[in-house]
Each structure stands twice: as C-alpha cells, then as structure tokens.
Design a protein around this nucleic acid. Structure first.
Lengths: 171, 171
DNA sequence: TATAAAACGCATTATGAATGCATGTTTGAT
DNA sequence: ATCAAACATGCATTCATAATGCGTTTTATA
C-alpha cells in the first residue's frame, strides 16, 4: 500500500513538491568545500614550486557560482584561518595549512553552524523534562562528526590529477 | 581571534541572525515523534485495559500546536501504518504496533524524507566525476541512521510515568 | 596613480516549511 | 434519518532564511 507512492509527494499534494531541504548541507558549506578542493588541487601539483593564488572570479568561473556568495565563504574561510587571503592587485587566497591538517569535520561544523539537530525549547515542548529523544539525536549528530573527523581535505584529493584537469578546462 | 565571536553572527552581519536551520529535523518530523510518544504513554499504562484513542485536538492542546500541521502528520503516520486512524464520531488514532517495533530510524527517515545530505547535481558541480565528498557524506548519513536504528519508540518511554503525568496535566 | 583584488554593508529574491481555511467524507449517537 | 464529531483533502497564505545582487570601501601592487 505504501511503497507505491513512496517519494512521490511529500505531504502537500497541491504543490507536488518532492522532499524538502532539511537535513542537507547548505550550499554555503558546499561552496566552502569546493573552494578548498580547488586550492588543494594546486597544492598537489608538484610542478608548481610556489602555490598559485586563486581569486574569487576564478572560482566563480570554474564552478558557475555567484561572486557574492563565494565572497562571503572565502571571507569566512579566512577568519577560520584555513586559507590566507591577500588583498590588492595580484591578490587572492591560498591554503593556510596542509590539506591533511584540514579536518572535514571542522570545516563542515564551522560553515554549517553547530546548532542542535532537534529543537526542544523555543518553542518549549512540554515533554522536555522526561524526553529521551534530544540525547539520542545529539549523540547521533556527534557520531556523524566523529566519522567525518577521520577525513581531511587530503582525503578529497584522491583523484587530484583528474580534478586539476577538470578545473583547468572548466571555463 | 576567532573564538570570541563564535556563534554570534553567521555571515550576514546586517540581519544579525544566528545559525540557520539546515541540518536540523523539521518540526514536521518532531511533531510526528511527539505524537507517537503521546500514544505510547497510553500503551504503557497497565491500568488501561484497552488503549485510549487520541484526537488531533487533544494533541494540539497538549503540545500547543496548530491543528492543520498536526493533521497532516497524523495522516502521514497513518499511511506509514504506524498508527491506526478511525474516522467519525468517537474516532481518533492509536498505535498500530508495539512501541518496541517502531524504529526511530524508520520514523525519522520517512517523515524527514530520505534525500541526500549533499547535492552534486541540480545544479551540476564540475568536480562530480572526481569528487570523494559525496561518498563520505552519504556514508556519514547512513551511520547516523544505523545508530538510530538501535532505538525504538519504547526507548523514548523510559520515563513513561512522568510523561503520562505531564501529558495529563498540560492543558 | 591606476588598477585589481578582497572586505563590508545593505537590499532583494527565491525557496520551502509552516500555517490557515474551507470543504469533503466517514461513523457513531440520538 | 439526522446530527455531530472526528479524520481526509486541497488550496492559499505567511514566514523564515538561504541565496543572491549591488555598490562602496579598503588594501596592495605594478
């Protein structure tokens, strides 16, 4: 009875929209990870003695993103001291650490924000004092980040040559 | 340098809003879990020979929620065959299974929707063919649900007497 | 001094969850 | 039979906020 319409409509039939966006990384976070991968692809190129600087324009052209949003992510990554930004002519930014020292758990946690995955107050839920759910979900969230902490930016560079090729040919 | 303003403002200083809502269960899902807990609290009462029916009005009064939203969640829980709904006068709904047979992983996955936690296509990301991230995040998501699958609705009823007391006194 | 880059602030748009409202349908009680 | 109380259904609206757009400021370098 149920499997047939699985995934078809969510709960508002009039709009016929598919599943929502919750429990998904924000584009903001996604962009941050792409920027780091882009920078790491330079790093991994032994032919380059000193790592090239990237610019926001370059990132936007490569990934087809809007400059403004990327602007904010780059600034955030700079504040997190994951990248070093340089103003002025011939400026840009580059990785401030080695890829293996940039933890995916840290990056995602910071860019995504670190709020609870379930909200019990605001508005307040009467069951709160006797509710086990908040603890269970909170532990699940930590397991997710524990798992991510096994990986670093370097883990994303397994196919570095292919990435470099993609990035260099993408308009 | 960074710890000081941690959590203060997110990335849009003008609005000064705190962290966003992504990577958080929807209220919809949350309401579903509360409804199940409410029903399970009847079940756990040995004084009741046949389990009492709950109504949407009752749930809304207890938790202070809007009838329409709860309406939809109840309907969804019915379609999932987690509760049995009865129309008509003296109607209502009750658990269709024993609390220990209602997996939290299943409930959350179904109510939340089961989409990927990271979106690589739509719009398409050039890095997709050589990107390791999607696999890592997908595995993390599965770990989260694997963990949740250890728990059932019964796991949420550890403090059943206290919950019953809360529910009966809440207007 | 001109130019190219990031930094910053504010305004606007787009999306979708959350809610509201009206009506239909079923069922038990009177 | 009729009424009333419950869920079922469809559509419209509101609200939060991520995503974007735009203009200006600051900084550094050629």
């Amino acid at each position: 009875m149920f499997d047939g319409d699985q995934g078809l409509l969510y709960y508002n039939a009039s709009k016929m929209y598919l599943f929502g966006q919750s429990m998904q990384l924000k584009k903001y976070t996604d962009y941050g990870l792409r920027i780091l991968m882009y920078l790491a692809s330079f790093e991994a190129d032994e032919n380059c003695a000193e790592p090239k600087l990237a610019t926001i324009r370059e990132i936007c052209d490569t990934f087809g993103l809007s400059a403004n949003h990327v602007n904010k992510v780059v600034h955030h990554l700079g504040r997190l001291e994951l990248i070093e930004t340089r103003r002025g002519k011939n400026g840009g930014f580059l990785l401030a650490k080695k890829p293996e020292d940039i933890s995916l758990a840290f990056v995602i946690r910071q860019l995504e924000g670190d709020e609870k995955w379930i909200e019990c107050e605001n508005p307040y839920c009467v069951a709160l004092p006797a509710c086990e759910l908040k603890g269970i979900v909170a532990r699940g969230k930590e397991l997710f980040y524990d798992y991510l902490s096994q990986y670093s930016l370097k883990s994303l560079m397994v196919k570095a040559p292919q990435l470099r090729q993609i990035f260099s040919t993408a308009s």
